[in-house]
C-alpha cells in the first residue's frame, strides 16, 4: 500500500469516526450521518402531526406502501415480533409507516394496514412533494413503474428502517438482512440508555 492511499483511508476513517459514537452497535450506527427526525404529515386518523407528537418515544421510521407485496409486510412483521420480545419497554416504541404512494394509500387504508401489526404502528401520509422532500432529507428515494392494465404499478422504495432515539436523533439503520437478534440487542441498549 502506498502513502496517498493510506492518507485517504486515514481521512476517511477520521470522517467516519467523527460521526460515530462510543457504544458499539451490531446494526449500522447512523448517529451524525442522518439529520434529526422532523416532518409535518397527516396520520391515519386524519390529524396533522409533526415529530413533536412522538417526542419521548423511540421511533422506527419506514418508507413503504400498503400494496407492497414483499419488503413492507416482511419488515413490519419483523418489527411486530421484535416489539413482542421487548415486553414492557415496547410501549416506548412507535413504528411510523410513511407512505410513498399517497395516491393509493388513503388514511383508511393505512389505518387498516397498520392495525394488522399492532397499536405501536402508525400510518402517515402527505402530499407527493412533502414526501419527496422528506425522503430527500433522509437520503432515500422512491419511484414508480409503468401502470399495468388494471392500473397497478410497481414502486421502488427504501428497504431501511431508521431508528431515532427519544430526542429525535438518528441512531440505527436496520435493513431486511439485519438479524432479528442484532436488532433486539441494539434496541434494548437504546431503550435502556434513554431511561
Amino acid at each position: 500500500m502506498n502513502y496517498p492511499k493510506l492518507i485517504l483511508i486515514g481521512v476517511f476513517l477520521f470522517l467516519i469516526s467523527a460521526c460515530s459514537n462510543d457504544e458499539p452497535t451490531r446494526l449500522t450506527n447512523i448517529k451524525g450521518l442522518i439529520p434529526d427526525l422532523a416532518f409535518e404529515l397527516t396520520d391515519e386518523n386524519n390529524a396533522a402531526v409533526t415529530e413533536k407528537n412522538y417526542s419521548g418515544y423511540t421511533t422506527a421510521v419506514f418508507f413503504g406502501f400498503t400494496s407492497c407485496p414483499e419488503v413492507c409486510p416482511t419488515t413490519m412483521h419483523q418489527w411486530a415480533a421484535i416489539l413482542k420480545k421487548l415486553g414492557d419497554s415496547a410501549a416506548l416504541v412507535k413504528v411510523l409507516f410513511i407512505s410513498v404512494d399517497p395516491e393509493r394509500d388513503t388514511t383508511d387504508k393505512l389505518k387498516k394496514y397498520t392495525a394488522l401489526f399492532g397499536p405501536a404502528f402508525i400510518g402517515l401520509r402527505g402530499e407527493d412533494a412533502v414526501i419527496k422532500a422528506m425522503t430527500k432529507r433522509y437520503r432515500v428515494t422512491f419511484g414508480y413503474g409503468d401502470k399495468d392494465t388494471q392500473g397497478d404499478y410497481e414502486v421502488s422504495h427504501s428497504s431501511a428502517v431508521f431508528v431515532f432515539d427519544q430526542y429525535g436523533k438518528a441512531r440505527l439503520l436496520s435493513t431486511q438482512s439485519s438479524a432479528p437478534d442484532d436488532l433486539l440487542h441494539d434496541l434494548k441498549n437504546l431503550l435502556a440508555s434513554s431511561r
Partner: peptide, 13 residues
C-alpha cells in the same frame, strides 16, 4: 452494493 436497496432506487429495476 445493498445501499441502493436500503435507500431505494430512482425507479423499479
Amino acid at each position: 452494493y445493498d445501499v441502493y436497496d436500503v435507500c431505494g432506487r430512482a425507479w423499479p429495476i
